[in-house]
Design a protein around this nucleic acid. Sequence first.
DNA 1: TCAGGTGCTGACCGATCGGTCAGATAGAGC
DNA 2: GCTCTATCTGACCGATCGGTCAGCACCTGA
Lengths: 181, 181
Amino acid sequence: MARPTPATHDELLTAAARRFAVTGYKGTSLQDIAREVGCSKATVLYHFASKDALLGELMAPAIAVLEELDTRIAEHTGADAQRVAAEGFVDLAVRFRREIALLRGEFSDLLQQPTFMHIQQISERLVAAFAGFSDRPEARVAALVVLAGIAETCGEFLDIPDEQLRPALLAVAYRALEVSI
Amino acid sequence: MARPTPATHDELLTAAARRFAVTGYKGTSLQDIAREVGCSKATVLYHFASKDALLGELMAPAIAVLEELDTRIAEHTGADAQRVAAEGFVDLAVRFRREIALLRGEFSDLLQQPTFMHIQQISERLVAAFAGFSDRPEARVAALVVLAGIAETCGEFLDIPDEQLRPALLAVAYRALEVSI
DNA sequence: TCAGGTGCTGACCGATCGGTCAGATAGAGC
DNA sequence: GCTCTATCTGACCGATCGGTCAGCACCTGA
């Protein structure tokens, strides 16, 4: 059963996304992913240079959007930047629910990897924009609560359709950040 | 260097808390904990029946407070219960920042353990109380964003003293949940 | 027909994991 | 002095981890 399936690559990607989201990156073995697709562990490492490379390819689209959001925020200031950041991040969170969910709790670990090094700086700028570029501890706390809350939550509502989840997340973000609409 | 230290037990507990909060439960080995205290891995397993038992003893105080909060919420209804839940959870989050932080991302895994089985139901009741016992998706989303956001965030602000972090968290929670003060 | 490439595999590697166990060390009570 | 017990350790266990490698099956194109 070898030839008619070069689709294996994509199957492995989606299977990995599914498993990572449930049991985390460290908590998921290459064996687990292989089992879900119905191939051997060696096949996983035939399609991807390493487990890290698999994660990298999995996160690439989400990271591209995040980087684009980062530059878009930089083009605005003050409350404008805050709104762009909030709407952009909610969009991103809803679109890439699974990808974001799989970072839960392993964020700080995975950021050590060279592929994700610059994500740290981007997320710091994101927090700053959420806080309205204020240094007040209250603003920093609110920004991080909202940011982490959305990231943590979006993966839990796979039953709610995008067009309903997006405004709900945005509303709670605006209230928490005291943004006038 | 054996005898004058039955303090080893406590040293191991605090070292484990420190490591778990940084690298997570799965990401921390018994060897890591032993190294931090300066003893052998076998010593860790002399003081604690297993790695799970160590985690259980570590979380026991926080869980006791959580259970107490759960019964206290049950004694109230509607907006009262919402306020009790918010204030109680913020208190708990601030007091047990490290313990809560170490659950990051491994919550669903650790909940499988018999010791933590009932936590799942408690946290469901907590979400319901945060949502003001509403079934509206918007209320559910807001409740989970706030709850997860606080849990995720509290461990990040070890530099902010309790008496400053508590009102900041409570304020953002009340705004997000639209609770009138 | 046959050479070459693609997709895939089982067997294997060293490292590390949580956990076990026999025994070393030393203070306490007699 | 001797025994008992608490504390601690190094050596070891089986399992599992990510990763390597030689080779098999099959398709393609000359």
